[in-house]
């Protein structure tokens, strides 16, 4: 399946991927409201240690440790490939946070829920990839 990968040599740590991710997952789809009012968290992490930086999203693993560890059934692996998250079932136990080797699952402490990349299921290309000004994110098939 297609997955999101970073190209660290061209990432400038501008954080636009995080901004567009949070906005895309907001109800208002408005940058300001998404951050200030809805407090939507980005479903990705940008790591930086100058001069290197890159974004990390859920890898939608073939054998996902998060799914196999989830105690409530909130995380499942779909037949089509993506690891699907049913927010209403999450109780914020953070077992997936302990299990995910990519460190790709964010804690939404206020809501006691996790937040995780859904590949922007309703878009043709994930928002982080589509809006990266330097094409430092690609959406393609690789080994895993």
């Amino acid at each position: 399946m297609k997955r999101i990968y970073a190209i660290e040599s061209v990432c400038m740590n501008c954080q636009l991927c995080a901004v567009f991710c949070a906005t895309g997952h907001s109800r208002s789809k408005d940058i300001i409201k998404a951050h200030n009012r809805e407090k939507v968290l980005p479903r990705l992490f940008v790591e930086e240690k100058r001069p290197v930086s890159f974004a990390v999203q859920c890898r939608h693993c073939d054998e996902p440790f998060c799914v196999q560890s989830c105690i409530t059934g909130a995380l499942t692996k779909s037949l089509e490939g993506p690891v699907v998250y049913a927010e209403e079932k999450c109780v914020g136990c953070w077992t997936c946070v302990a299990a995910c080797p990519y460190g790709a699952i964010r804690r939404d402490v206020d809501r006691k829920k996790i937040a995780k990349c859904d590949l922007c299921a309703e878009l043709t290309e994930p928002a982080c990839v589509a809006n990266c000004p330097n094409q430092a994110l690609v959406y393609e098939e690789r080994g895993s």
Binding site: F65, V97, A98, C100, Y102, G103, I105, R106, R107
Partner: peptide
Amino acid sequence: EIDRAGILTGLIRD
């Protein structure tokens, strides 16, 4: 501060 603790788990597992 347990965020991303799974990265440690991955290093252990592998």
